[in-house]
Nucleic acid binder design. Structure first.
Lengths: 225, 225
DNA sequence: GCAAGAAAGATAGTATTACTATTAACTTTG
DNA sequence: CAAAGTTAATAGTAATACTATCTTTCTTGC
């Protein structure tokens, strides 16, 4: 039995927010506020008011709101990794492993399904709509070097390995893996905001199907050329 | 002979910046500054200093820096649409049309290749790294409704149509089209910043190849199930 | 060549953000 | 119960994202 191991790089916070009441309040209410306001409207001042504390108290836990977002991202990708592990163990067929991995990415949690502190759905929603702001920013290169994207990279790598197992001759495993991981999130975002860009509604099984077929197309690479 | 028609929704600006010296200065120097600073560090104040004018003069052209970004995006996608048109005309095979369309998306302009006011490469760089900030923002829905994404949507639609022509039975043409259009930009971004996520270097032909194969996998849909 | 109107410049001001610093109060725990 | 650690309260700063107003300069049409 695997256990969910949340893998947050310790430099993401100044002081572990899971270690105190206040810290947990920040995480929890921060999530909701970021969810409803979006990263740009979200401020520590507003959060402080919501949980009846002060801005400076929050700053003792996180240097910036972007770091708080990185916390949620790490949490989400750790959760994904855990779920993948769970779904995949004891399955030996690669095809099926891949399908299940994608199923986890596309999975829409029930609104009240919680894991540890958070409602998984809320964390996912925040990640879906805000996470691009972590790696399309001038500081990507620093964050990258600092290893803040660890859990995300591990998921991509996992998929990449499976693709290589599926078809060792396929030369674009990394690219395909990111395309799929990113793609799933984007399609879900579009489903909610720019429906003309997608063929899915947020919770559809067809989404898994679509990306699954895309990955399977790598199979037998080279033979049909 | 097609002519490049830049298609910028008039509500993106308060006053057409192409219509005056100052306006053109804003566009040109704004592009460079946004390119080097990134959207978050970029401010109208800094831009004003660079072109020896005042903040308030710039505000006479654009309400916010996000609108200025939307201008560049519209310009870029208009340019793409134009290049697609050019590359595709007189080609009748769908496969080849698709390959060429993707080729345009993946194309890395020479640093000094300019079109009208701008160096295409700079505009593309800005679009690649900043454009997510236009549609992963709480105001997407408004922008969407306002039609600011017109030129982008038209490119996606173009690809979507070709996919449908390639394989009428394929049910995910829209999703595949966005996955490819987004994917090309993302892979180029990763190539520059998080190389572990991709298999390409920024100007590689393999990038076109990769996405081309992905699209072609839609061919014969259903038959091999 | 000049008057009317448009465009640009100069200056000022506001509310808010993203912080930092300092000190005082309150809670643990040893 | 004292010391150490946590949090709260208050204050302050430089910068951002605007808005407003007024003056100067530039155009152009008669």
């Amino acid at each position: 039995m695997e256990v969910l191991q949340i893998n947050v790089h310790p430099k993401i916070y100044l002081k572990d927010p899971r270690s105190s009441e206040l810290g947990r309040g920040i995480l929890l209410e921060g999530l909701h506020l970021m969810h409803q306001l979006g990263l740009e409207e979200f401020t520590f001042r507003k959060l402080a008011m919501h949980i009846h504390t002060t801005e400076s108290s929050i700053y003792r836990y996180f240097e910036t709101k972007h770091k708080l977002l990185l916390f949620y991202e790490s949490w989400y990708w750790s959760w994904v990794a855990y779920r993948i592990q769970f779904e995949i163990s004891n399955i030996e067929q690669v095809d099926e492993r891949i399908r299940r991995l994608i199923g986890v990415l596309a999975y829409q949690p029930e609104p009240h399904e919680r894991y540890g502190l958070f409602a998984v759905k809320t964390v996912k929603d925040v990640v879906v709509s805000e996470s691009v702001k972590s790696y399309f920013v001038k500081s990507v290169d620093d964050n990258q070097r600092a290893g803040y994207f660890g859990p995300y990279l591990r998921v991509v790598e996992r998929l990449s390995e499976l693709i290589e197992e599926l078809e060792p001759a396929y030369p674009f495993a990394n690219a395909l893996a990111t395309t799929v991981v990113e793609g799933v999130l984007h399609q879900q975002h579009f489903a909610g905001h720019i429906p003309a860009l997608t063929n899915f509604n947020p919770a559809s099984d067809a989404l898994t199907e679509f990306f699954n077929q895309l990955v399977l197309s790598a199979k037998g690479y080279g033979k049909n050329l």
